[in-house]
Write a protein that binds this DNA or RNA. Structure first.
Lengths: 331, 331
DNA sequence: CTGAAAGCGCTTACAG
DNA sequence: CTGAAAGCGCTTACAG
């Protein structure tokens, strides 16, 4: 448990044992930039194995000017969607020998001096993925520093920034139509009104179906907020709503509990289609019918995009959500 | 988006602007190890502010021999308990100006060459927290390298390793007694039989209450496994079980869904007390009655312990779980 | 194909 | 109180 500098096995040790220069050890490890004779390489590899040598990433990062780490900025790792997204990104990076360093956007606002990206930049991250409302300062910072950045599931803040996003509009329309197809006529909305295409899309779908909008609740993205929304709907709009489009699985989880507390059942009294397709969805209420995001594909593409040196930020990558039908919609 | 070495503002730039040597800049930033005259300090601070200078953590880590990062090894960040624990640890570290780097224990086994801790050590992490079954190789490695390590909620693998753990035994006994107090007589178990004190404690509590053990299902720690357990209990033991002690909130979430699919209601047919006290517990089924772990305190203590240079691994820190009563127990 | 050497941006004894 | 200099463990042009 001592904090003295640990005795570590360095490249020097390997070099000595293999009777080569330290440079050659690097050449072998990195497969370049200079060629190495097969016999020499074998000696080096043996020395590495015998010593259990593992190159120090800090030193490597300093020499290279960038690390093997990719930064991820998330709003709330506790939300199942973000937890699964982060896990998927972590796995993609792992496959490439890189590691993920996650910073929560939550306790950042209080830290006036450091935006999330700046704090990642201090670590020489090679790239950053933003799964949170893009702070303009962050975006400007990334551009100024030449830090590859991709924004996930948020409106692309400005030209010149890569982004990947699910087609919220068409997914929402499909969800609302599905509820209407079940004969529901008072279809409400639970989610966030601000800068989220799902809210206008919900209205658009109702217009298209010739239905008057049911009650809508504007709320934060937490389970607790969903619960409050459910309770409020039951209290203020009982009888005026027979279905809900709920903008996330987490919200739906809270909402169903809030409705139930008020004596309203899902799907009988109120049918629900939610959004995300997380792994908890099958176990929420009667099973959530949900518009599933292709989380693994988004993660893979984001990693690929952000690691590709030549990627020029172009049109946002677009994904289609897939409806997964379970009990909550009344099917 | 270019990958050229970004032009960055270094300590040199600050030194030039403040007309001091680079060393003095370090003295100011680190508050030592040499004193700096007030006037000089002021000049340096102004230069730092004007340039927006932020010290490079990679270089600092290399020079110091350790970084400002603490590593966390977790089984499954997707499990709400671990997600909340990781978030709490992250927050504690943030308060100390440090960052968290999480590695998943899940995709490690396939990587024969690198245990989770070794991969963290490559990053010069200052310390590591293990919220996963401690791999003996990892533990030996930490000891050999002098890497401060604390193991959370697992049996302390051996002397010389710090650990913090909830008192599983007494919490389980309290949970089982609570169910018995509701008149339940066939109290089953869902969880893991191996190396988990909750399983023997469940039996012990039943013995103490003069009850025959109900059916027990040995399963993994996932929601899916909980679902399967619920389904199996309903299929194989219907009528032989009127209550369950379920070893985690996530398991309970799956289990309740599995029981419901088979037509069994909670708490009427089967009362449940689970474990963890996560933020989803209020919204699972009729609300989970759960033995809540003091997640924030565990996180704070773990961080403190692992960062304290003088901490000698002693008796494991012990915590008491607190029963939070909701609907699932039939109260 | 191999190696001596400069450099990445810091920390910190050591000498003034 | 301040600074010149060595060193952390790597990468990589450059010269052989």
């Amino acid at each position: 448990m001592s904090l003295e500098r640990a005795v570590r096995c360095t490249r020097q040790d390997v070099a000595r044992r293999a009777e080569v220069s330290p440079a050659v050890v690097s050449y072998v490890i990195n497969g370049g930039p200079r060629p190495v004779a097969a016999a020499t390489r074998a000696r080096v590899e043996r020395a590495i194995a015998e010593l259990g040598y593992r190159p120090n990433k800090t030193a490597s990062a300093l020499a290279r000017g960038r690390s093997q780490q990719v930064g991820l900025v998330v709003v709330d790792t506790t939300n199942p969607f973000y937890a699964e997204l982060a896990a998927a990104i972590d796995h993609e990076l792992f496959l490439r020998g890189m590691t993920l360093i996650t910073v929560s956007a939550v306790h950042r606002p209080s830290d006036a001096q450091a935006t999330a990206l700046e704090s990642l930049a201090e670590h020489d991250v090679r790239a950053a993925i933003l799964a949170a409302d893009p702070n303009p300062a962050d975006v400007a910072y990334a551009r100024a520093k030449g830090l590859p950045l991709v924004v996930l599931n948020e409106m692309a803040p400005s030209a010149g920034i890569s982004s990947a996003i699910v087609d919220y509009r068409s997914a929402t329309i499909e969800a609302v139509r599905h509820l209407a197809g079940h004969g529901r006529r008072r279809i409400g909305f639970v989610g966030n009104f601000v800068r989220d295409l799902r809210y206008p899309a919900w209205r658009e779908a109702l217009d298209g179906a010739g239905l008057t909008p049911g009650p809508a609740v504007n709320c934060a993205w937490t389970i607790d907020a969903g619960f409050e929304a459910g309770r409020r709907l039951a209290a203020d709009h009982r009888g005026e709503v027979d279905a809900l489009f709920v903008a996330s699985d987490a919200l739906a989880m809270g909402c169903i509990a809030g409705l139930r507390e008020a004596g309203l059942g899902v799907p009988d009294d109120i049918a629900i289609v939610s959004f995300d397709g997380t792994r908890v969805a099958p176990y929420v209420g009667p099973g959530l019918t949900t518009m599933a995001q292709p989380i693994d594909r988004i993660a893979a593409d984001a990693v690929e995009l952000v690691l590709d040196a030549d990627a020029e930020p172009g049109t946002p990558l677009a994904y289609t959500a897939q409806m997964v039908v379970r009990g909550s919609c009344g099917c």
